[in-house]
Design a protein around this nucleic acid. Structure first.
Length: 453
RNA sequence: GGCGAGUUGGCGGAGUGGUGACGCAGCGGAUUGCAAAUCCGUGUACAGGAGUUCGAUUCUCCUACUCGCCUCCA
């Protein structure tokens, strides 16, 4: 099965050919750990989780190396520590734990490596020293800056020229920069801020160098795929390329660049000021199952803006309930070709879901389950929410009883009363000649059943 | 201002140079005490303009609108 991916670098869909099929290497930019992951953070985690599942399926689980980092040195973290009075390590440790919990809740499997920036300071310092030695970086006033003019292809990924960027620059330029676009590799740390000893004094790394150093260390100078949100394309990824390619001209850094589009909420940008900002944990706490979040995320292609709406969550829940019921006692069968083909076609998860609908309609439960699991849906891990939270058999028997009576008396008022109460609690009431069946439906609320008889 | 992405039926959302996906909602029917679920059937679309073509929603250009990014920071 050929895999096609839209490479941001060429802006075209390309057939994917691994550098080494025995070790397909992927690097994805992970979160800066200073707070709970918001819904937007979940999108790349889920999208690239599907990519990893696809690659493992095609090349074999043992032949894929997936790296997603944690940025645990950053001024946002420093600010958070300053305002809360808490220890930085304590904040980052706690936040990493939250992130892993929340991502697991939406079915994201842990990557093979989850490096933390603070544990790669030595590699960063070495890379910076190397860049200075090779003439791509210079020290100025305690900072080390990357000289963008030393790298001819600077701006190629995001389609910008140095001239345009300088012309459009809005911010005052630090006087010690040779070129206004030069960016920081290392900066001095005042007492009280995290810092490490270096040839340029006590300081801390700039934002971009960590990914270059960790990718080099874990994946080598050339690897297959680098992913992240498209807000990172410039400057972050552009700068990663410049650093890595200059430090390791023997390599080509990432061969394919994948960028997911941003997330919106109810048609608007998610922001605190609009009051539509929420974390993954907020949704989970509201009772929205992680599997529903994942389904909604995957129902829009990763390269298009994704709009999170309550309506979509409702629809997704209904679909998943139906599919869960259909596949409950069925073992996953062979992976349906059409599902694999869709996912292999630039991660067309929405197209794959269409195929799942077809399988469901055809009653192919084994195929449905296998196909869904390629997307990380209908897995055992995510299924707890769909298990009936209450025993409805007593109510079903009661309803059957009064219905039988009503059939004779022709007075259905009591049946309708109980039915209405059940429906209000989110229970699907199915009455037929065969009997009464009660099934938890979308929005099922076990607590609303208390006192019913 | 620069760069990039997008604009598909009531809603969501794929895809394709030529028989108008798929889901939800709607409508008609079967079924039902009435419903629900299920099954059968059914309507509506490719932002606007120009071009290429035998033929474009699909390719090219222009316009409009939306969104994202634009240096040590967030």
């Amino acid at each position: 099965m050929d895999i096609f991916l839209t490479n941001s670098r060429s802006r075209t869909k390309e057939r994917f050919t691994p550098l080494d099929p025995a070790n397909v290497r992927v690097y994805v930019c992970g979160p800066t750990v200073y707070d709970r992951a918001h819904l937007g953070n979940a999108r790349p985690a889920i999208v690239f989780d599907v990519l990893a599942r696809l690659l493992r399926h095609v090349y074999g689980a043992e032949h894929v190396t997936y790296v997603r980092n944690f940025t645990d040195v950053d001024d946002k973290i420093n600010a958070r520590a300053a305002e809360t009075g808490r220890d930085i390590a304590e904040i980052t440790e706690e936040t990493i734990g939250w992130y892993l919990d929340d991502m697991a809740a939406v079915g994201v499997a842990e990557p093979d490596h989850m490096p933390r920036a603070t544990r790669y300071i030595a590699q960063m310092v070495a890379m910076i020293a190397d860049l200075i030695a090779k003439g791509h970086a210079y020290e100025a006033e305690g900072h080390v800056l990357f000289a963008v003019e030393s790298y001819a292809d600077y701006g190629a990924l995001s389609g910008r020229s140095l001239e345009d960027m300088i012309a459009g620059a809005r911010v005052e330029v630090a006087p010690y920069k040779r070129n206004p676009m030069d960016f920081v590799l290392w900066k001095p740390s005042a007492a009280g801020l995290p810092g490490w000893d270096s040839p340029w004094g006590r300081g801390r790394p700039g934002w971009h160098i960590e990914c270059s150093a960790m990718a080099q260390d874990l994946l080598g100078a050339s690897f297959d795929i680098h992913g992240g949100g498209n807000d990172l394309m410039f400057p972050h990824h552009e700068n990663e390329i410049a650093q890595s390619c200059c430090a390791h001209p023997e390599g080509s850094f990432a061969k394919v660049w994948l960028h997911n589009e941003m997330l919106q909420v109810e048609g608007r940008k998610m922001s605190k000021s609009l009051g539509n900002f929420f974390t993954v944990r907020d949704l989970l706490d509201q009772g929205i199952p992680g599997e529903v979040i994942r389904f909604v995320m995957l129902s829009t292609h990763y390269r298009k803006p994704m709009d999170w709406t309550a309506e979509k969550a409702r629809e997704a829940e209904a679909v998943l309930r139906k599919w869960r019921a259909l596949t409950a006692d069925v073992a996953a069968g062979a992976l349906p070709e059409a599902v694999l083909r869709a996912v292999a076609e630039d991660l067309n998860s929405a197209g794959a879901i269409t195929e799942l609908h077809r399988l469901a309609a055809a009653g192919d439960a084994a195929g449905l389950k296998a196909g869904a699991q390629l997307l990380g849906l209908l897995t055992a891990d995510l299924g707890d929410w769909a298990v009936a939270g209450a025993d409805l058999s007593g109510l079903a028997a009661r309803l059957a009883e009064i219905r039988a009576t009503a059939m004779e008396t022709k007075d259905f008022s009591e049946v309708d009363r109980l039915k209405a109460a059940l429906v209000a609690a989110g229970v699907e009431v199915r009455m037929s000649k065969a009997g009464v069946e009660l099934v938890p439906g979308a929005g099922f609320d076990a607590s609303a059943l208390e006192g019913l008889e």
